[in-house]
Protein backbone atom coordinates (compact mmCIF):
# COMPACT_ATOMS: atom_id res chain seq x y z
CA UNK A 1 0.00 0.00 0.00
CA UNK A 2 1.38 3.40 -1.01
CA UNK A 3 0.10 6.58 0.61
CA UNK A 4 1.14 10.22 0.46
CA UNK A 5 0.92 13.03 3.01
CA UNK A 6 1.17 16.65 1.97
CA UNK A 7 1.71 19.44 4.46
CA UNK A 8 1.04 22.84 2.89
CA UNK A 9 2.52 25.11 5.55
CA UNK A 10 2.74 28.89 5.78
CA UNK A 11 6.41 28.84 4.85
CA UNK A 12 7.18 25.45 3.29
CA UNK A 13 5.48 22.56 1.52
CA UNK A 14 6.40 19.09 2.74
CA UNK A 15 5.43 15.84 1.02
CA UNK A 16 6.06 12.33 2.25
CA UNK A 17 5.39 9.11 0.32
CA UNK A 18 5.04 5.99 2.39
CA UNK A 19 5.01 2.32 1.36
CA UNK A 20 3.45 0.01 3.95
CA UNK A 21 4.37 2.43 6.71
CA UNK A 22 7.95 3.04 5.53
CA UNK A 23 8.90 6.47 4.22
CA UNK A 24 10.22 6.09 0.66
CA UNK A 25 10.36 9.77 -0.29
CA UNK A 26 10.40 13.10 1.45
CA UNK A 27 10.65 16.48 -0.28
CA UNK A 28 10.45 20.02 1.11
CA UNK A 29 10.24 23.32 -0.77
CA UNK A 30 9.67 26.95 0.11
CA UNK A 31 6.04 27.85 -0.29
CA UNK A 32 4.84 30.92 -2.14
CA UNK A 33 1.71 32.58 -3.45
CA UNK A 34 0.94 29.85 -5.99
CA UNK A 35 0.82 27.06 -3.46
CA UNK A 36 -1.19 24.74 -5.70
CA UNK A 37 1.34 24.81 -8.57
CA UNK A 38 4.23 24.45 -6.13
CA UNK A 39 2.54 21.52 -4.43
CA UNK A 40 2.32 19.73 -7.80
CA UNK A 41 6.04 20.34 -8.37
CA UNK A 42 6.92 18.99 -4.95
CA UNK A 43 4.73 15.94 -5.54
CA UNK A 44 6.45 15.25 -8.88
CA UNK A 45 9.84 15.42 -7.20
CA UNK A 46 8.66 13.08 -4.46
CA UNK A 47 7.35 10.59 -7.04
CA UNK A 48 10.71 10.64 -8.85
CA UNK A 49 12.50 10.10 -5.53
CA UNK A 50 10.22 7.16 -4.74
CA UNK A 51 10.58 5.83 -8.29
CA UNK A 52 6.82 5.50 -8.79
CA UNK A 53 4.02 7.05 -10.84
CA UNK A 54 1.19 9.14 -9.45
CA UNK A 55 -1.45 6.45 -10.12
CA UNK A 56 0.50 4.04 -7.93
CA UNK A 57 -0.33 6.19 -4.90
CA UNK A 58 -3.40 4.63 -3.30
CA UNK A 59 -4.43 7.62 -1.22
CA UNK A 60 -3.26 11.16 -0.47
CA UNK A 61 -4.21 13.20 2.59
CA UNK A 62 -3.40 16.91 2.97
CA UNK A 63 -2.78 19.02 6.04
CA UNK A 64 -1.40 22.47 6.79
CA UNK A 65 -2.82 25.95 6.37
CA UNK A 66 -3.22 25.46 2.61
CA UNK A 67 -4.79 21.99 2.84
CA UNK A 68 -8.11 23.00 1.32
CA UNK A 69 -6.50 23.86 -2.02
CA UNK A 70 -4.17 20.85 -2.08
CA UNK A 71 -4.05 18.99 -5.40
CA UNK A 72 -4.30 15.14 -5.51
CA UNK A 73 -5.60 14.88 -1.94
CA UNK A 74 -8.93 13.15 -1.35
CA UNK A 75 -9.04 13.89 2.37
CA UNK A 76 -7.83 16.62 4.66
CA UNK A 77 -6.79 16.59 8.30
CA UNK A 78 -6.03 19.47 10.67
CA UNK A 79 -2.40 20.28 11.53
CA UNK A 80 -3.07 19.20 15.10
CA UNK A 81 -4.45 15.81 14.05
CA UNK A 82 -1.63 15.21 11.58
CA UNK A 83 1.10 16.17 14.06
CA UNK A 84 -0.39 13.88 16.72
CA UNK A 85 -0.63 10.90 14.34
CA UNK A 86 2.84 11.47 12.88
CA UNK A 87 4.46 11.87 16.28
CA UNK A 88 2.92 8.75 17.77
CA UNK A 89 4.13 6.78 14.76
CA UNK A 90 7.65 7.96 15.52
CA UNK A 91 7.45 7.06 19.20
CA UNK A 92 4.39 5.37 20.77
CA UNK A 93 5.38 6.51 24.28
CA UNK A 94 4.90 10.18 23.48
CA UNK A 95 2.19 12.13 25.24
CA UNK A 96 3.05 15.75 24.45
CA UNK A 97 3.83 17.15 21.01
CA UNK A 98 5.21 20.68 20.72
CA UNK A 99 4.93 21.69 17.07
CA UNK A 100 6.48 25.07 16.26
CA UNK A 101 6.09 26.16 12.66
CA UNK A 102 6.62 29.36 10.71
CA UNK A 103 3.40 31.08 11.77
CA UNK A 104 1.88 28.84 14.43
CA UNK A 105 2.83 27.10 17.63
CA UNK A 106 0.89 24.14 18.98
CA UNK A 107 1.02 22.04 22.14
CA UNK A 108 -0.84 18.77 21.71
CA UNK A 109 -1.58 16.04 24.25
CA UNK A 110 -2.00 12.67 22.52
CA UNK A 111 -3.45 9.33 23.51
CA UNK A 112 -1.43 6.12 22.92
CA UNK A 113 -3.58 5.57 19.79
CA UNK A 114 -2.43 8.89 18.35
CA UNK A 115 -5.68 10.73 19.01
CA UNK A 116 -5.76 14.29 20.25
CA UNK A 117 -6.74 14.57 23.91
CA UNK A 118 -6.22 18.31 24.32
CA UNK A 119 -4.35 21.09 22.59
CA UNK A 120 -3.42 24.76 22.74
CA UNK A 121 -2.57 26.82 19.72
CA UNK A 122 -1.20 30.26 18.92
CA UNK A 123 -1.88 31.43 15.40
CA UNK A 124 -2.68 35.05 16.19
CA UNK A 125 0.72 36.38 17.11
CA UNK A 126 4.17 36.05 15.53
CA UNK A 127 5.85 35.87 18.96
CA UNK A 128 6.26 32.15 19.54
CA UNK A 129 6.65 31.20 15.89
CA UNK A 130 9.46 30.80 13.38
CA UNK A 131 8.64 34.17 11.84
CA UNK A 132 9.77 35.81 15.08
CA UNK A 133 13.26 34.38 14.74
CA UNK A 134 13.40 35.33 11.07
CA UNK A 135 12.50 38.93 11.87
CA UNK A 136 15.20 39.07 14.56
CA UNK A 137 17.79 37.49 12.25
CA UNK A 138 17.02 40.26 9.75
CA UNK A 139 17.51 42.93 12.41
CA UNK A 140 20.79 41.29 13.47
CA UNK A 141 21.89 40.85 9.85
CA UNK A 142 22.72 37.18 10.31
CA UNK A 143 21.37 34.12 8.50
CA UNK A 144 18.71 31.92 10.01
CA UNK A 145 21.15 28.98 9.81
CA UNK A 146 23.71 30.83 11.96
CA UNK A 147 21.12 31.88 14.53
CA UNK A 148 21.01 28.73 16.67
CA UNK A 149 24.73 27.91 16.70
CA UNK A 150 25.56 31.55 17.47
CA UNK A 151 23.25 31.60 20.48
CA UNK A 152 24.98 28.52 21.91
CA UNK A 153 28.22 30.53 22.21
CA UNK A 154 26.55 32.92 24.68
CA UNK A 155 26.47 32.25 28.40
CA UNK A 156 24.76 35.48 29.33
CA UNK A 157 21.03 35.91 29.84
CA UNK A 158 20.13 39.36 28.48
CA UNK A 159 16.48 40.17 29.19
CA UNK A 160 14.13 41.00 26.31
CA UNK A 161 11.14 43.06 27.38
CA UNK A 162 9.16 43.15 24.16
CA UNK A 163 6.86 40.31 23.33
CA UNK A 164 5.57 41.61 20.01
CA UNK A 165 7.83 40.85 17.02
CA UNK A 166 7.49 44.44 15.79
CA UNK A 167 8.56 45.90 19.14
CA UNK A 168 11.24 43.23 19.63
CA UNK A 169 12.86 44.28 16.35
CA UNK A 170 13.30 47.82 17.74
CA UNK A 171 14.58 46.35 20.98
CA UNK A 172 17.18 44.27 19.13
CA UNK A 173 18.34 47.39 17.30
CA UNK A 174 18.61 49.24 20.65
CA UNK A 175 20.62 46.35 22.11
CA UNK A 176 22.97 46.49 19.12
CA UNK A 177 23.39 50.25 19.63
CA UNK A 178 24.23 49.57 23.28
CA UNK A 179 26.99 47.26 21.96
CA UNK A 180 25.41 44.06 23.28
CA UNK A 181 27.22 41.16 21.56
CA UNK A 182 25.16 39.52 18.81
CA UNK A 183 25.47 36.06 20.34
CA UNK A 184 23.92 37.31 23.59
CA UNK A 185 21.04 38.82 21.63
CA UNK A 186 20.41 35.59 19.72
CA UNK A 187 20.25 33.76 23.01
CA UNK A 188 17.84 36.35 24.41
CA UNK A 189 15.60 35.82 21.36
CA UNK A 190 15.67 32.03 21.81
CA UNK A 191 14.84 32.41 25.50
CA UNK A 192 11.97 34.80 24.73
CA UNK A 193 10.34 32.48 22.22
CA UNK A 194 10.77 29.35 24.34
CA UNK A 195 9.19 31.05 27.35
CA UNK A 196 6.21 31.91 25.10
CA UNK A 197 5.94 28.29 23.95
CA UNK A 198 6.27 26.85 27.44
CA UNK A 199 3.61 29.15 28.89
CA UNK A 200 1.27 28.09 26.06
CA UNK A 201 2.12 24.42 26.66
CA UNK A 202 1.43 24.74 30.38
CA UNK A 203 -2.16 25.66 29.56
CA UNK A 204 -2.62 22.02 28.56
CA UNK A 205 -1.02 19.80 31.16
CA UNK A 206 2.32 18.63 29.80
CA UNK A 207 2.86 14.88 30.20
CA UNK A 208 6.02 12.91 29.46
CA UNK A 209 7.38 12.03 26.96
CA UNK A 210 7.73 15.33 25.10
CA UNK A 211 8.70 15.71 21.46
CA UNK A 212 9.60 18.93 19.67
CA UNK A 213 8.73 19.09 15.95
CA UNK A 214 8.26 21.66 13.19
CA UNK A 215 10.85 23.87 11.53
CA UNK A 216 11.88 25.55 14.79
CA UNK A 217 13.23 22.20 16.04
CA UNK A 218 16.17 22.72 13.62
CA UNK A 219 17.23 25.75 15.66
CA UNK A 220 19.69 24.31 18.20
CA UNK A 221 19.62 27.51 20.24
CA UNK A 222 15.86 27.32 20.60
CA UNK A 223 16.07 23.64 21.57
CA UNK A 224 18.65 24.50 24.24
CA UNK A 225 16.40 27.28 25.57
CA UNK A 226 13.43 24.93 25.66
CA UNK A 227 15.48 22.47 27.71
CA UNK A 228 16.47 25.26 30.10
CA UNK A 229 12.87 26.48 30.44
CA UNK A 230 11.08 23.14 30.72
CA UNK A 231 13.55 21.63 33.15
CA UNK A 232 11.23 18.96 34.56
CA UNK A 233 10.88 17.16 31.21
CA UNK A 234 13.17 15.42 28.76
CA UNK A 235 12.59 16.95 25.32
CA UNK A 236 13.17 14.75 22.31
CA UNK A 237 14.04 16.19 18.92
CA UNK A 238 13.56 13.64 16.13
CA UNK A 239 15.26 13.46 12.73
CA UNK A 240 13.47 15.47 10.05
CA UNK A 241 11.29 17.26 12.61
CA UNK A 242 9.60 19.31 9.91
CA UNK A 243 8.14 16.23 8.20
CA UNK A 244 6.19 14.82 11.14
CA UNK A 245 2.93 16.50 10.05
CA UNK A 246 3.22 15.23 6.47
CA UNK A 247 4.02 11.76 7.81
CA UNK A 248 0.94 11.96 10.02
CA UNK A 249 -1.17 12.77 6.95
CA UNK A 250 0.34 9.78 5.12
CA UNK A 251 -0.40 7.59 8.15
CA UNK A 252 -3.98 8.77 8.22
CA UNK A 253 -4.30 7.84 4.53
CA UNK A 254 -2.85 4.47 5.48
CA UNK A 255 -5.33 4.06 8.38
CA UNK A 256 -8.28 4.99 6.17
CA UNK A 257 -7.38 2.26 3.72
CA UNK A 258 -7.47 -0.16 6.61
CA UNK A 259 -3.71 -0.62 6.68
Amino acid sequence: MITAGMDLGAKTIKIVIMKDGQVIARVKKLSGFEQEILAKEVMNEALVQAGIELDQVDKTVATGVGRKTAPFATDIITEVGAAARGAIARNPNLRTVLDIGAEEGRAIIVTPEGRVKDFAINEKCAAGSGTFVEAMARALEITIEDFGPMSLTSDKAVPMNAQCAVFAESEVVSLLHARTPKNDITRAVCDAISSRIVSMARRVSIEPEVILIGGMAYNVGFVASMKRTLTEMVIQVPDNPEFVGAEGAAWIAHDKLGG
Binding site: E103, K124, C125, A126, T131, F132, A135, C164, A165, V166
Partner: peptide
Protein backbone atom coordinates in the same frame (compact mmCIF):
# COMPACT_ATOMS: atom_id res chain seq x y z
CA UNK B 1 -14.99 49.34 1.43
CA UNK B 2 -13.02 46.07 1.57
CA UNK B 3 -13.13 43.46 4.33
CA UNK B 4 -10.61 44.19 7.07
CA UNK B 5 -7.22 42.47 7.02
CA UNK B 6 -7.89 39.25 8.93
CA UNK B 7 -4.53 38.80 10.72
CA UNK B 8 -4.22 40.46 14.09
CA UNK B 9 -0.42 40.34 14.24
CA UNK B 10 1.26 43.14 12.26
CA UNK B 11 3.89 40.71 10.98
CA UNK B 12 1.25 38.34 9.61
Amino acid sequence: EPDPVSSTCVVF
